[in-house]
């Protein structure tokens, strides 16, 4: 499989990280966003990443020199039509995403592979209004934050996706140093489904709003379990509202299966605007 030219749509944290990672392989990347401010931020991010990785000698010397020329920060009006791969990394809004994919279907070459970095929507739902030829060339590529560092890419095939395409992309990512995982189109895919209990079970062990217990549980899971962060400090970092929303989304997608049920403490903290580090108060208090 050859990937020589990539369009990443959405210059937020994920989009910028994905774009920079592709460029670090020497691949030409267009990073598109309609917000000039977002594009400026993305440019700064890419410059910082290049400097950071180059100083650690983690980049090919030849690529380092050209790297900043490899990423072009563009508006939609500057789209080309001959990308090998387009990755969507915009806001998690079904209608906005579906409209974008319809537009891409119309303007991109038929050979262009279109992928979504969604963490919550079924891939088949995102592609349902596309042409039959495009549906075959459409799949999920779920990166993890920060994209240049985290090795996993979930390669998600819908019922319409070409299995050969999924296999080729799996092999391509593996060759480029990522650790891909094949995944069927299902709510939460692998990680957001299996990891739910890393939060749900400690919440049930704590059972009440007790910072001493949160601290003890975090400490035990780090020391005994070997996890890098405890669940309460991690929920505070992610945002309790964000984590609660993902929990509810997976729970509802699985017809309110009890294994995914949110804990009342999550809703309580969200209602009290205790959202974690960003509001200086979550499970823990921050100065």
């Amino acid at each position: 499989m050859n990937i020589n030219k990539v369009l990443v749509i959405g210059a937020g944290t994920m989009g910028s990280g994905i774009a920079w990672w592709f460029s670090s392989l020497g691949i030409q990347v267009h990073l598109q966003d309609e917000s000039q401010e977002q594009l400026e931020k993305a440019k700064k991010y890419c410059e910082e990443q290049t400097y950071r990785w180059a100083t650690k000698n983690k980049l090919d010397q030849r690529i380092t020199q050209d790297l900043l020329q490899l990423v072009k920060f563009i508006k939609k009006s500057e789209w080309d039509h001959d990308y090998d791969l387009v990755i969507e990394a915009i806001i998690e809004n079904l209608e906005i995403k579906k409209n974008l994919f319809k537009e891409l279907d119309e303007v991109m070459d038929k050979k262009t592979v279109i992928a979504s970095n969604t963490s919550s929507f079924p891939i088949a739902l995102l592609s349902q209004d596309l042409s039959p030829e495009r549906k075959v060339n459409f799949l999920g590529l779920h990166f993890f934050n920060p994209a240049p560092v985290m090795k996993l890419v979930e390669v998600i095939s819908s019922k319409d996706s070409s299995q050969k395409l999924a296999n080729d992309l799996y092999a391509w990512f593996e060759e480029k140093g990522k650790f891909p995982a094949h995944c069927k189109d299902s709510p939460g895919f692998i990680v957001n489904r299996v990891a739910r209990n890393f939060y749900g079970e400690p919440l049930r062990i704590a059972a009440e709003d007790d910072e001493k217990k949160f601290k003890e549980i975090d400490q035990v899971l780090k020391e005994v379990g070997g996890f890098r962060m405890g669940p309460f400090e991690l929920m505070d970092l992610i945002g309790i509202d964000v984590n609660y929303s993902v929990t509810c989304s997976v729970w509802n997608a699985y017809n309110q299966e009890p294994r995914f049920a949110p804990h009342p403490l999550q809703e309580k903290l969200v209602n009290e605007k205790r959202l974690g580090r960003k509001s200086k108060r979550g499970f823990y208090q921050y100065e």
Binding site: L152, V194, N197
Partner: peptide
């Protein structure tokens, strides 16, 4: 509970054991 969910995901045919292990370690 994490392991139990991994078994349910396997039963649902979401991914292979190897890919589930890999996803949780590297994601």
């Amino acid at each position: 509970q994490i392991i139990n969910e991994a078994y349910f995901a396997l039963e649902d045919g979401i991914a292979t054991k190897e890919d589930i292990n890999r996803a949780m370690k590297f994601g």
